[in-house]
Amino acid sequence: MIVFVRFNSSHGFPVEVDSDTSIFQLKEVVAKRQGVPADQLRVIFAGKELRNDWTVQNCDLDQQSIVHIVQRPWRKGQEMNATGGDDPRNAAGGCEREPQSLTRVDLSSSVLPGDSVGLAVILHTDSRKDSPPAGSPAGRSIYNSFYVYCKGPCQRVQPGKLRVQCSTCRQATLTLTQGPSCWDDVLIPNRMSGECQSPHCPGTSAEFFFKCGAHPTSDKETSVALHLIATNSRNITCITCTDVRSPVLVFQCNSRHVICLDCFHLYCVTRLNDRQFVHDPQLGYSLPCVAGCPNSLIKELHHFRILGEEQYNRYQQYGAEECVLQMGGVLCPRPGCGAGLLPEPDQRKVTCEGGNGLGCGFAFCRECKEAYHEGECSAVFEASGTTTQAYRVDERAAEQARWEAASKETIKKTTKPCPRCHVPVEKNGGCMHMKCPQPQCRLEWCWNCGCEWNRVCMGDHWFDV
């Protein structure tokens, strides 16, 4: 396979590697080409510095992935760790964990309700045991953590790749202090920090972006993250068709209702045909949960890209028209025109101005929308079919299609509260000796007794199943 190397943020060049090629071997190839010592090179990928003893497969490097290699003399205490030698983080029983690669970060837990604080980093599902597709590297999971809308060759929703760059020099040479644990960490600028490894760059702020994971991409090709779309790892039924499908869209209502993408497309087109989208002054033209839940309008309007190009163009047109109407304007009634106009409040005669090729020149009556006339309008008909009709959803289907309910059931079956801080902690095999993952707590306690870890627990039921 081919990976592209950008040395000291210059133009990239291809390097041929195998899945079992080590990072140090990659350094040696680059060092020979650039005429520099291999031990002064640092390989940066997806916000993480890659260790010498890791392989291309370990690092989730795919065909035509772009890695950054910078030349920086080692500072005291760094060289041993980078070589894969006596790194205290690798000691058996050590409590410190390697910062998780962005290629394996899962933010789907952050669609849980606000009262489930902490689960994004504490609760991990076991539903990723799908067998890898044919042709994928051994052991590589097909679980997708992110979804994007690819405006490039795909023109559809695709699995996405999370990447990070330095907000100062805009190069992907920043190593994160810690990985993101929720969508806010990724979507809110300057929320996460790190250290830029580019020479002479003092940058410390992280800037995240997404790429389409279905095809090789260049540095400049980015895609918009659709953070309401998630892999259906909890096997929730769709609120409309009641099938279990994946991926799904999880509405931001209190129940976190789930809808499959085909039904979401149908829901949007139906509402669009009836012009029953909601115009929100802050958000724009949007839709609420299909069950009509309060405070559930979709905030990231790129989710409506699921409509496809033709329907999305209609959505944008109707949204612009609705904006004009909300501002007190009118639409030209001549067939084939429909231009938005903003006449004076007491102006009865409205002319669709033909300047700049935008208007048709038609003069019409503001009251009856017919060709302009003197005197009273002959008839004014009330528009028919403008009443909002509820999208029919079966109550039982709505009850079963809740992301929140599956989460709470998982928590109930696989977790116990920490005796000190009461945060839910998952036990997935292993011994009875637990350690609270909350940095402010870190209590060592017994899963069996529910009390602080002691010699009695150690001698009596340390390794009970």
Rank of each mutant, 00 (worst) to 15 (best):
V3P: 04
R6T: 03
F7H: 05
H11G: 03
I23E: 01
F24G: 11
K32T: 10
Q34L: 08
P37L: 06
A38T: 10
V43L: 06
I44S: 03
G47T: 01
K48S: 04
R51V: 05
W54Q: 14
L61M: 11
H68W: 02
G77A: 11
Q78N: 12
R89P: 13
R89N: 14
N90D: 13
E98S: 11
Q100R: 11
R104A: 12
L107F: 12
S108A: 10
V117C: 14
G118W: 03
L119Q: 15
L123T: 15
D126Q: 09
S127Y: 10
P133Y: 10
S141T: 11
F146W: 05
C150I: 01
Q155G: 14
T168I: 09
Q171T: 08
Q178K: 14
G179W: 04
C182N: 12
I188P: 05
M192P: 02
S193K: 14
E195F: 10
T204Q: 09
E207Y: 06
A214R: 07
A214D: 06
T222M: 08
T222Y: 09
I229M: 10
N232Q: 01
N235W: 05
I239M: 09
V244M: 05
C253E: 01
N254V: 10
D262F: 03
L266Q: 05
Y267S: 02
L272Y: 01
Q276T: 10
F277H: 00
L287P: 00
P288R: 06
G292P: 01
L297G: 03
I298N: 00
E300L: 04
H302G: 10
H303V: 09
Y312G: 03
R314E: 02
Y315S: 03
Q326H: 09
G329D: 03
V330Q: 07
L331Y: 03
Q347C: 07
K349I: 11
C352G: 02
G359K: 12
C360Y: 02
G361Q: 07
A363D: 14
F364I: 04
H373R: 02
H373P: 02
E374W: 05
G375H: 04
E376F: 08
V380K: 10
E399T: 12
E409N: 11
R420H: 15
E426I: 10
M432P: 01
K435W: 05
C441D: 00
E444I: 05
W447Q: 05
C451N: 15
E452G: 15
R455F: 15
V456A: 15
H461C: 00
